[in-house]
Design a protein around this nucleic acid. Structure first.
Lengths: 112, 112
DNA sequence: TATGTCTGCAACTCAAAGGTTGCACATCCG
DNA sequence: CGGATGTGCAACCTTTGAGTTGCAGACATA
């Protein structure tokens, strides 16, 4: 998709960003507002928000003089589906090894 | 669960580890075998395998004198379900804001 | 007007992560 | 036996990433 799997996962691979995401999941907040709730500087928050925005996990909106961010659940859902599909493919491979030893399976379409 | 969300995601946040995982998804391989297929040293592969093993994404098995690893699809599936659940909760919050503007919702327990 | 708040940009520190080389030791095979 | 091959450990290098401080500009509002 827009951003490769490793990149999106890397964005989710930081505890502070999860702190940010869970708060943005409850409602829109500005970088300054987040900095008040978390033990890091506003600038650090800003960098995290940029990372999250680049992979589509948050969206920003200019509200008056401040910029508010909110978590995009759909993006996380898309990632989840992708991971689930891959996980199933791994397991099916294992089954296939068995089947291979018994009878020939059908041709598979590794769709898209 | 066993490992925190950020930790598992961080493990998936590296391109080389995905290269390893996709290969282990096709079948069991040793660190040396992987090193032959990838442009990194065997030692580097070993470190990656250790990271993946710690979060349960791969399992190892002593086979003769060598140690083979394989990808655990179930682990990835579990992660996917967790992410999906969280993503839905984010979106439902947005709906709740609307509802709030119309009728008073029930008292909510932020269960556990 | 003056003050407080929010934003953006830049330079800098510091620790962790990815990667490498080198070496010692076990083990399989010709 | 002896040479490949596979593993484990350790020291080391280098880059990245998280976080900081500092400063300047925009915009509300008392």
């Amino acid at each position: 998709m827009t951003a490769g799997l490793p990149v999106v996962c890397a964005a989710l691979g930081d505890a502070t960003r999860w702190e940010i995401l869970t708060r943005l999941g409850r409602g829109p907040l500005s970088a300054s507002a987040l900095a008040r709730e978390l033990p890091v500087s506003r600038q650090a928050i800003g960098k995290h928000l940029e990372v999250l925005r680049e992979v589509g996990l948050v969206e920003s909106e200019q509200r008056g003089r401040e910029v508010v961010y909110l978590a995009v659940g759909a993006r996380l859902g898309a990632l989840a589906r992708e991971l689930d599909r891959i996980g199933r493919s791994w397991d099916s491979r294992l089954l296939r090894i068995k089947e291979l030893a018994e009878g020939p399976p059908e041709a598979e379409g590794t769709a898209k």
